[in-house]
Every structure is written in structure tokens, then in C-alpha cells.
């Protein structure tokens, strides 16, 4: 039983991190129809921003987090400006390959300038253990889960209630409404990349604190997983990212607990494939209608 609770917490932790990153994929997809392959690397960049802020400026957790979120947002917006905007009218595939290029560039540029070695992330939190129903919980785990949840609720609020959030939804559902709202597409896209990147940076710092090492290629595998989570839940849907992230987290942790850990990735993908075959547009996605 305690083992189960332990695994449950691990799954929640992993799942909420996937969800945080998946949100960025899903938001950009909803607005531009683009699979932003560079998003995983913004997660990595966010971790490095956090690292340098904490080491060089010696800031504490909250300011580190906020500053890193800001820097990542700037990075995300800059990438959109330089690499994606000129291609907005080009075929979608060109845009996706460009995103792949940006991704490779970010990884390898970081590697070339900072070196490929793993760096241990500074301790921004005095890790303490608690007992919970026989399982041990750390305040770090709680922090990760709480921060993720709060940010997701906040995002939900922004998307549902604020002007810019409504504009974001208008872009994916109904372009005419957008024009009526008097908000330009560029503004919406900027906000989307900014928010998505800030969330990814948060995930980067949380992962840095939890594991506690970072390296230039940390965004690749996690990025793919988060993308899968987004698709699993139904890409383009905010709630889908949350659902997909949590499910993927649970599947990975429990698959690893039941089977040799080497099967972990295989199982995750097998589940993904099964879900997509049963529900081709993701768990929360509405079926696409053929209009003739």
C-alpha cells in the first residue's frame, strides 16, 4: 500500500511536468497548427536560465523561477519572430521542419558554448521528507505538483476569461471573431509563445531541482514525451494536455514498476498507439468531420 502511494506520487510528479510542457505544444498547435519541435529545447533553456540565475545572481527559488520564466518567454517569442513568422504562409510541413532545425540549433548551440557535460542543479530548496501513509514524501515533490497545478489553473483562467485568452480560442475556432475583437494575430501568437515558453521554463527548473542534473540534450526525450502527452489528450486542447500528461506519467511509472524498466518507453508508446486507434483525435478530442 505504501509502495502504491509512493508510486502514485512519483506518477503525479512526472505527469504534471509532462503536462506543463505539453501545454506549450498544445497552445502553439491550437493557434498556428504547428508542432513546435523546439519546445522541448525551450524547456532545456529554461533549466539553464534557472541554473545560471541561481549560481551567478544567487537568487532564491521564487525570483529565480520568475526571471527564468521571463527569459524563456523572450526566447520563445524571439524564435517565433525570426524563424516561424516568415513562414506563416508557407506549407505547414516547411514550418515543422524549420522547427526541427531550431530545435537542433538550440541543443547544439548550448552544447557548443556550455559543454555537453551534466551539471548539478543548485539546491534552491531544503529538501525535507515527510511520512504519508507509510510512504515518504518530500516537500520538493509537493512543490512540483502544487506549482504545476496552480500554473495550469491559472492558464485555464487566462484562456477562459481574459481578452487575450478569448482571442487565442478565436484563432483556432473562428477567425472572424478575432478581427472583431481588434486583436492582431501577431499579438495572439506572441502571447501564446510567451506563455508556453514560460511554462516550459518552470518545468525545466522543477526537473533540474528534482533529478538534480541538467544537460543540453535533456529537452529531447522529455519534449517528445510531452508532445505525445498533448496528442494523447487531444492536441490543441488545454485540458487535453493535463489529462495526457498525467496519464503518460502514470503509465510510465506503473509500467516501470510492473515490468523491467527497460520496457518503459515501449509501453508508453504502445498505450499511445492504442488510444489513438480507438480515439483518433485523442482522449478529449472531438472527431473530425469530413465536410464535402
Amino acid at each position: 500500500m505504501s509502495y502504491f502511494i509512493q508510486q502514485l506520487l512519483n506518477a503525479l510528479q512526472l505527469g504534471s511536468i509532462y503536462a506543463l510542457i505539453a501545454l506549450g505544444y498544445t497552445m502553439v498547435y491550437g493557434v498556428l497548427g504547428l508542432i513546435n519541435f523546439a519546445h522541448g529545447d525551450i524547456f532545456m533553456a529554461g533549466a539553464f536560465f534557472g541554473f545560471f540565475i541561481a549560481v551567478m545572481l544567487k537568487l532564491s527559488l521564487i525570483p529565480t523561477l520568475l526571471l527564468a520564466m521571463f527569459l524563456a518567454a523572450v526566447l520563445g517569442i524571439a524564435i517565433e519572430r525570426v524563424a516561424y513568422r516568415p513562414l506563416r504562409k508557407a506549407p505547414r510541413m516547411s514550418l515543422i521542419i524549420t522547427a526541427l532545425g531550431v530545435s537542433l540549433f538550440l541543443e547544439n548551440f548550448t552544447r557548443a558554448t556550455l559543454g555537453g557535460q551534466q551539471r548539478s542543479f543548485p539546491k534552491l530548496l531544503n529538501v525535507q521528507e515527510f511520512a504519508l501513509g507509510g510512504a515518504t514524501v518530500t516537500n520538493l515533490q509537493i512543490l512540483i505538483i502544487v506549482v504545476s497545478l496552480v500554473l495550469m489553473l491559472l492558464l485555464r483562467y487566462v484562456v477562459q476569461k481574459t481578452m487575450i485568452g478569448k482571442a487565442m480560442r478565436a484563432v483556432s475556432d473562428n477567425k472572424e471573431v478575432l478581427a472583431l475583437m481588434g486583436i492582431s494575430l501577431d499579438t495572439v501568437v506572441m502571447a501564446t509563445f510567451g506563455i508556453g515558453s514560460a511554462l516550459a521554463a518552470t518545468a525545466g527548473i522543477l526537473v533540474g531541482m528534482a533529478y538534480p542534473v541538467i544537460d543540453p540534450y535533456m529537452g529531447i526525450a522529455v519534449g517528445w514525451k510531452a508532445f505525445i502527452a498533448a496528442v494523447l489528450g487531444g492536441i490543441g486542447l488545454i485540458d487535453g494536455a493535463l489529462v495526457g500528461g498525467l496519464i503518460l506519467g502514470f503509465v510510465e511509472i506503473f509500467a516501470a514498476a510492473l515490468l523491467p524498466s527497460t520496457y518503459r518507453d515501449g509501453i508508453a508508446f504502445a498505450i499511445l498507439i492504442i488510444v489513438l486507434l480507438l480515439k483518433p483525435t485523442g482522449l478529449l478530442g472531438r472527431p473530425v468531420v469530413k465536410k464535402v
Binding site: I235, I273, L276, L277, T281
Partner: peptide, 24 residues
Amino acid sequence: KTFGDYLAVITLGFNMIIVNLLNN
């Protein structure tokens, strides 16, 4: 049975599964 981005994910998924099986 799927298409577009979902097909992309599925083909990628099979890629990963093949590698994972070979590993095991």
C-alpha cells in the same frame, strides 16, 4: 486509420517500440 499529425505520432511510436524491443 489516422492521418496527419496523429499518423506522425503513430509512426514515431512504432519507431520507438521497435527500438525498445531490440533493446530487450
